[in-house]
Design a protein around this nucleic acid. Structure first.
Length: 430
DNA sequence: TCTGGGGTCCTAGGACCC
DNA sequence: TCTGGGGTCCTAGGACCC
């Protein structure tokens, strides 16, 4: 089985460019919520030395000096581009696993080495022609190898954006002699240090080690990595389970927040959105966690962080029950005197709505005010009239804690919105 | 002045049971 | 000092990812 990783180049920046082709050759950056950090850079911006994740205020000067086009993020548009790219990829491979908003793994059974590169180029061209998004393709025996190959393709123009890992083992081992263990997929600070302390500095060291020995000090994750790098697949290309296991909605505030009133509005707003996500995916949750954070970058200010869970009586997707539960949890952890920077809610213990045991009449208690029909009406109205048109009063009216974004792209998509699909499975990032 | 948001998986340790 | 032994299930938190 040959596997491949298709990865959109500079995805969000490429989306902005696809929306406005006049931006070709112009440096672009896309900013996170509240215009806080740089979350995507075009090749030209990377060349200017603008780091990924940099706070915008630190790079604003450089941007202004070099005529960098700066965009606030437009996740709705990026989501549509993503769906379009995935649809094209789906036509090209038997197996497709949407891994993130800008990446997918593909599977090709019985693919001769001689044909692989050509196939890769065909896929890349198809995505470019049909979406205007440039991608890179890494092809190899395992997912870990696909990651490496993709990285190689991105950084070596002579590959034309497609790199196929040699089928011959000796050639692969040679390749690994030029890769540090830290650069392998799944190796972060912790695992990297552990591998190094056992004398494994290069990926080739790991590839020649006994996987069961690696397991002793690096756990199953380390063992699987050692196997994958040997060409033995531990992570299959699979359509992921559609039922998400958790839903997180969190935002930094646009200004420092101290009042419980403001926090309650924010938490209620996030809980509403989380409930909406549940219903989009036909899921229900039984536990909600409220998260509260001060600004960890301000060590001169008193620090406080708390996560408080509230378990509900039944599985639900009802915004009112979830908001009420979140509010109760918030009141338990709220401490006056701190300057809060961020708040969020996290839904866990999630089930598909149809597997949830319905409450039998006369048995158990129907939670007060639970009328699924009402939520359906709310969803429909918000879909027609715009997000947030109908919402709970507890989410507030002034909402001065909300952040702002300065320069979102005014996107008009070059195609109709794709029909309803498992879009919520996609995760947004770059 | 200004520092993102949303996920998954694994592990260790406690609760509980026989 | 010593305090049974093992299995399973659950959860919190860490690590890592995009």
């Amino acid at each position: 089985m040959l596997r491949a990783l298709a990865d959109c180049n500079n995805f969000y920046a490429s989306c902005e460019r696809a929306l406005n082709p006049a931006l070709r050759g112009v440096p672009i950056v896309v900013l996170s919520n509240n215009d806080g950090c740089v979350i995507a850079r075009s090749a030209e911006s990377k060349a200017l030395g603008i780091p990924m994740g940099a706070p915008y205020f630190q790079v604003r000067r450089v941007c202004e000096a070099h005529g960098v086009k700066v965009f606030s993020s437009n996740f709705a548009a990026y989501g549509d581009f993503s769906a379009r790219v995935m649809a094209v990829l789906q036509e090209q491979a038997r197996d497709l696993e949407v891994y993130s908003v800008d990446e997918a793994f593909l599977g090709f059974p019985d693919m001769p080495e001689a044909d692989a590169a050509l196939l890769g180029q065909r896929i890349k061209a198809a995505v470019w022609e049909q979406t205007g998004i440039p991608i890179s393709l890494g092809m190899g025996p395992t997912k870990v190898w696909c990651k490496l190959a993709n990285e190689y393709a991105k950084n070596h123009p002579h590959t034309g954006g497609v790199f196929v890992v040699p089928y011959a083992e000796a050639a692969r081992l040679e390749f690994l002699k030029h890769v540090a263990v830290e650069d392998l997929w799944g190796v972060g600070e912790g695992l990297g240090a552990r591998l190094r302390s056992h004398g494994m500095v290069l990926a080739s060291d790991l590839a020649t080690a006994d996987p069961s020995y690696v397991r002793k000090f690096a756990g199953v994750v380390g063992e699987r990595l050692a196997l994958e790098i040997r060409g033995i697949s531990c992570y299959e290309v699979d359509e992921k389970p559609v039922t998400r296991q958790s839903i997180l909605v969190s935002r930094s505030f646009g200004r420092p927040v101290q009042d419980l009133t403001d926090l309650t509005e924010a938490i209620a707003t996030h809980a509403m959105r989380a409930a909406e996500k549940l219903r989009e995916d036909h899921l229900m949750a039984k536990a909600i966690v409220v998260m509260l954070r001060t600004n960890r970058h301000r060590q001169d200010q008193a620090q406080y962080r708390a996560d408080e869970v509230e378990v509900l009586e039944t599985y639900t997707d009802d915004a009112r029950l979830l908001c009420a539960a979140a509010t109760r949890a918030l009141e338990r952890i709220y401490r006056p005197g701190f300057i809060y920077k961020k708040a969020g809610v996290y839904l866990s213990d999630i089930q598909t709505a149809h597997t949830v045991q319905p409450i039998l009449p006369g048995l158990g208690t129907t939670p007060e005010g639970t009328r699924p029909g009402l939520m359906k009406v709310v969803d429909r109205l918000n879909e027609m009239l715009g997000p947030d048109t109908i919402r709970l009063a507890s989410t507030g009216f002034e909402r001065s804690w909300k952040g702002q974004s300065a320069q979102p792209s005014k996107a008009t998509l070059p195609w109709a919105k794709p029909a309803a699909g498992p879009k919520s499975r996609l995760r947004f990032h770059e």
